[in-house]
C-alpha cells in the first residue's frame, strides 16, 4: 500500500466483469478521494450498475482488485463489505415491500444503533428525505419517486462514509429532484459519494468531477464543464440516448 492510497476511499485496479461473452466492466482503474462527490455518466448498458455491484460484492469480479481505504475487499461477501461503511441505493430499488417506510428505515438504523436511538434516527431520516407523511405506508404501494426517497432515507440511516447512488432521481417530480440535489450536496460534506445519473440539469446542480463510462471502460474523466463541452462524450452519450428515444 502506497501513501497515496491513504487518500482513496475506493480504488479499483483492472476491474473486469464478464457475463458469458459480454464484458460489462472492462479493466476499469478508478479511484475516489476521501470526501469527493463524483458523477458517473454513460449510456445505458455502459456498465455503471455492474460496476457498483462489483464494489459492493453483489457480483464477484472476474478479474481485478477492489480496495476500500487501502484494504483489498475483492471476493468479500456483501454484508461484510457494507459494514465497512458503504451504503448503496440500487438502480432498481431494493426495499422491504411488505413493510412500512418507517420500518424499512428503522431496520437500516438498527444495524448501527440500539433500539431507541434507531427509532429516533429513522424518524430523522424520513424527515430529512421529506417522506415523513409516508412513514406508515407500505412501500410496495408507493410511487417510484417516493420509493427512491425512502430508499435514500434507508441508506442515510446506515450512516455510511461512502454512498453509491444509482440513478436516484429517476421517477421523481421536479420538487423531489431539487430536494435530492440538496440532500446529495449536504451528504457530501460528511461522506464520499458516487452518483450515477442521466439527468443533465440534476448533474449540473451537484457535479464537479465526472467519470464517463462507455462499453464497460472509462471513456473520460474530467471536471463537469469540460465534459459538457466534449464532442466525443456528447456523441457516445447523446447518440445512444437518441437511439433509445427513437
Amino acid at each position: 500500500m502506497s501513501d497515496a492510497d491513504d487518500h482513496k476511499v475506493i480504488r479499483t485496479t483492472g476491474l473486469t466483469m464478464r457475463f458469458g461473452g459480454v464484458t460489462a466492466v472492462d479493466h476499469v482503474d478508478f479511484a475516489l478521494n476521501e470526501g469527493e462527490l463524483r458523477c458517473l455518466l454513460g449510456p445505458n448498458g455502459a456498465g455503471k450498475s455492474t460496476f457498483f455491484k462489483c464494489l459492493t460484492g453483489q457480483l464477484t469480479p472476474t478479474e481485478g482488485v477492489v480496495e476500500f481505504r487501502g484494504q483489498p475487499i475483492t471476493g468479500w461477501l456483501t454484508h461484510d463489505i457494507v459494514k465497512l461503511g458503504i451504503g448503496i441505493k440500487t438502480q432498481v430499488p431494493n426495499l422491504f415491500n411488505g413493510l412500512s417506510a418507517y420500518e424499512n428505515v428503522r431496520l437500516s438504523a438498527r444495524r448501527k444503533h440500539l433500539a431507541p436511538m434507531a427509532r429516533q434516527k429513522a424518524e430523522e431520516m424520513l424527515e430529512k428525505c421529506g417522506v415523513t407523511d409516508l412513514a406508515k405506508r407500505e412501500v410496495g404501494l408507493l410511487a417510484h419517486g417516493q420509493r427512491q426517497l425512502v430508499e435514500l432515507a434507508m441508506v442515510l440511516a446506515g450512516e455510511p462514509s461512502l454512498v453509491l447512488l444509482d440513478e436516484p432521481a429517476a421517477g421523481m417530480t421536479g420538487d423531489e429532484r431539487d430536494r435530492l440535489a440538496r440532500l446529495v450536496l449536504e451528504l457530501s460534506r460528511n461522506a464520499s459519494v458516487i452518483v450515477v445519473e442521466h439527468d443533465m440539469a440534476f448533474i449540473r446542480q451537484i457535479a464537479k468531477q465526472v467519470t464517463v463510462f462507455n462499453r464497460g471502460a472509462i471513456f473520460r474523466e474530467a471536471p463537469i464543464d469540460e465534459i459538457m463541452r466534449d464532442r466525443a462524450v456528447q456523441e457516445i452519450y447523446l447518440g445512444k440516448q437518441a437511439d433509445v428515444a427513437a
Binding site: T56, Q58, L77, T78, H79, V82, K83, I88, T90, N94, L95, F96, N97, G98, L99, E103, L107, S108, R110, R111, M154, G158
Partner: peptide, 17 residues
Amino acid sequence: RVSVGIRENETRSSLLG
C-alpha cells in the same frame, strides 16, 4: 424483524449489513 426483512428482500438485507 430482520428475519421478516430477509423474507421481503434478501439483497437489501445484505446491503444493510
